[in-house]
């Protein structure tokens, strides 16, 4: 699911030795859907259940946040990111901030 670099949320990489840590790398993005989508999701919310368009919105945003984190790690010359954590916060209604962070390492 992640291209170009090894990303795990464990502290170590199974089968590999971490030789050097290169500090914390992070990527974040704030995204919102347009008003039309907000209205249709509001209508769907009356009936309850899953809000498919918001799920898609968060999935796309998360891909972007992870992509930025990976780009930062690669610019530092890392070969892997370990101990990745995700955080989500809603800035206002309908706009969400997705934040991914981890430790860039050299592993072999």
């Amino acid at each position: 699911m992640v291209q170009g670099i090894l990303v795990v949320n464990t502290e170590t990489i199974p089968g590999m030795m971490i030789t050097e840590t290169l500090g914390v790398v992070s990527g974040s993005t704030v995204r919102a859907k347009n008003l039309g989508r907000d209205i249709t999701q509001g209508l769907r919310n009356i009936m309850g259940g899953e809000l498919v368009k918001y799920t898609e919105l968060l999935e796309e945003s998360r891909q972007e946040a992870i992509g930025r984190m990976v780009a930062e790690a690669m610019s530092r010359g890392a070969t892997a990111i370990v101990n990745v954590r995700f955080a989500t916060s809603a800035v206002t209604a309908g706009a969400a901030e997705l934040f991914a962070y981890g430790t860039a390492v050299k592993a072999e």
């Binding site: 699911m1 992640v2 090894l6 990303v7 795990v8 949320n9 464990t10 990489i13 199974p14 089968g15 919310n45 009356i46 009936m47 309850g48 259940g49 899953e50 809000l51 918001y54 799920t55 968060l58 999935e59 998360r62 992870i66 990745v84 995700f86």
Partner: peptide
């Protein structure tokens, strides 16, 4: 273990107005 990588899934879920 020979290979690894991060995997995730999310879902937005709400109660109905009732």
């Amino acid at each position: 273990i020979t290979d690894c990588g991060v995997v995730w899934a999310g879902v937005v879920f709400g109660p109905s107005h009732w």
